[in-house]
Amino acid sequence: MRTSSLLPKKQEASEIPPPSRRTVKGGYSQPSRARLKFNDLLSKWTFLGPTTLLLLALLAYPIFYTIQISFSELNLATFAPKGWVGWENYKDAITDPGFLNSLKVTGIYLVLALPLQMVLGFGIAYLLNVEWKWRGLVRALFLIPMVVAPVVAGGVWKMLLDPLWGIVNYMLGFVGIGPLNWLGDPNLAMISIVLIDTWRWTPFIVLIASAAMLALPRDVFEAAAVDGARWWHTLIHVSLPLLASAIGAVFVVRWLGAVKMFDIALAATRGGPGQSTNVVNLYIYEEAFRSLKFAESSAMAVIVLVLTMIMTMIFLRTTKKLEDRF
């Protein structure tokens, strides 16, 4: 009896399909195309709806609110936008020498950091792909910088690089280098920021590059070996073309991450000495939360967003072209 209760019940008269269902030859009914389409849409949006709502609330709303503030004056007594000021905040932003300087500083940082991290990341991944004894341990150790918060990384490196108390100058002293004023010299400070950022982000590139390399087809490499290709030729003519799409994707992801870097600079140099490491997001952050110029800083943020989108589109198109080419 218990078993029979688990079996599907016989169809009752009340469960006979409604008349809207089309009856086909053979006796059973089939839902109409419109109804099928509706059901399909319903099930799709049942799954998509919550995510869409969340995305709208968490991403779109802040962006639209920032855009709204950028065209308004922010009333500090209510912390709400008041009055439409047109392009006034944008005019202020593009004539602000500090903002323009911060864009330049960000450009320098990106030009130095991104190629270095890409070359190092893929280079290390290439080495980790070769079988050797401690490969697993090294790969695990590489994860450490990734789990350190950027502000902590900046603070710790500030201590390590300190000329009075830091260990880096102490160690360099044994080989006759220094003492170097890592964070106090305007030129060295930018290099120090790039090095700290590289220490933190190269493992991320290594991980993705390793995965991409593991997914490469073995037969092509075997064919290259049979044809007598040297490692250098294999790298240039086989590995890199096959990795082109992965390199492009990693570059775009890293570019988007690097553009918004400010925490390392905040912790290590506070944008100094002078303005030499005052990257654009640090500048915007300070304009907003230190000077309480929320409207102007929103305009700056929108400008940076637009510039980033344009650059990202260019990179994506280039990546697509590379993929098509290889």
């Binding site: 009075l164 964070l183 140099t269 506070r270 100094g272």
Partner: peptide, 9 residues
């Protein structure tokens, strides 16, 4: 001032 003092807060 000591070396590195330009970064002192």
């Amino acid at each position: 001032a000591p070396p590195g003092a330009s970064t002192w807060q």
